[in-house]
Design a protein around this nucleic acid. Structure first.
Lengths: 108, 108
DNA sequence: TGGCTATTTGGCAAATTAACCAAGGAGCTT
DNA sequence: AAGCTCCTTGGTTAATTTGCCAAATAGCCA
C-alpha cells in the first residue's frame, strides 16, 4: 500500500508518469511545434486509434495537454510552453558517462 | 511490441520513468540538499530496504544518481544539479486549472 | 578468521499499465 | 433523419512494474 502523498508530490508524479512513455513523449514533443488533431497524432505514433486516444486522455488529465473540439476533429496542444526547458533538463541528466563524475562540478 | 526508439528518446523516457514514482521522486528531492546513504533514504521513504535499494539502482542506471561506497555505507547523490530547474518546470505544467486556459499565453 | 553491519540480488505474487478490438457517442452534411 | 467521419469508452488479455522475503555479497573490526 502506497503511503499518503502530498498533493504537490502526487501531481508531480502524475505529470512525470504521463511523460514517461515513448508514444506520449513523442506526442508531447510534436505538440511543441503546433497543435494537432487526434488523427495527426495517430499517424505520428502509429498505434491503434483507441490507444492514442487513451494516451491523450492521460496526458490531458495530468495537465500536460489541453484539448478543444472544432468540427469533427479534436485538437490537442500543450498546456504550457516550458517543455523546451523541461526536456533540456532531462537531456542533461546523466549526459556524461556516470563513472567519470566524482563530485558535483557544475554539471548541467 | 514497441516500435524502435531513437536512443535519445529512450534515454529521455528512462530518466522520466525513473523519476515517475513517489518514492523515487522523494529520494531525488532529498538528494538535492546533500548526499545520503542508503539507510538514510530507507528511513526517508519507509519501504523495505531491498525495495529502496532497487529504486536506487534504477535511478542510477537511468543516470539520475551516482553512488559511492565509503566504508560500510553507500552514498548516493544527484548526477546533475539541474533538478531544481527541472522540478520548477514540472510544477508549471497544468498549474492553472485547465478549463480556464484557451490559448498559449506565456504560461510558465 | 569470525562476526557484524550495510547493501544488493534473486525470486515470486500482487498491482498497475498497455494495447487491441468492438461498440458507443458527437457532430457534420446531405 | 441517415449516413459518414472522428474520437472516446468498455472490456479483455498480455506485459511490465512493484514490493516483500530470503539469501548472497562486501567491508569493517575484534
Amino acid at each position: 500500500m502506497p503511503k499518503p502523498l502530498s498533493s504537490a508530490a502526487s501531481k508531480r508524479v502524475a505529470v512525470l508518469k504521463a511523460l514517461a512513455h515513448p508514444s506520449r513523449l513523442l506526442i508531447t514533443e510534436a505538440l511543441m511545434t503546433r497543435e494537432l488533431c487526434v488523427c495527426d497524432l495517430r499517424e505520428l505514433v502509429g498505434d491503434d486509434l483507441s490507444t492514442v486516444s487513451k494516451h491523450l486522455s492521460l496526458l490531458r488529465s495530468a495537465g500536460v495537454l489541453l484539448s478543444e473540439k472544432r468540427g469533427l476533429n479534436v485538437y490537442y496542444r500543450l498546456s504550457c510552453d516550458c517543455f523546451g526547458e523541461f526536456l533540456k533538463c532531462v537531456d542533461q541528466v546523466g549526459a556524461e558517462p556516470k563513472a567519470t563524475r566524482t563530485l558535483f562540478p557544475n554539471c548541467c
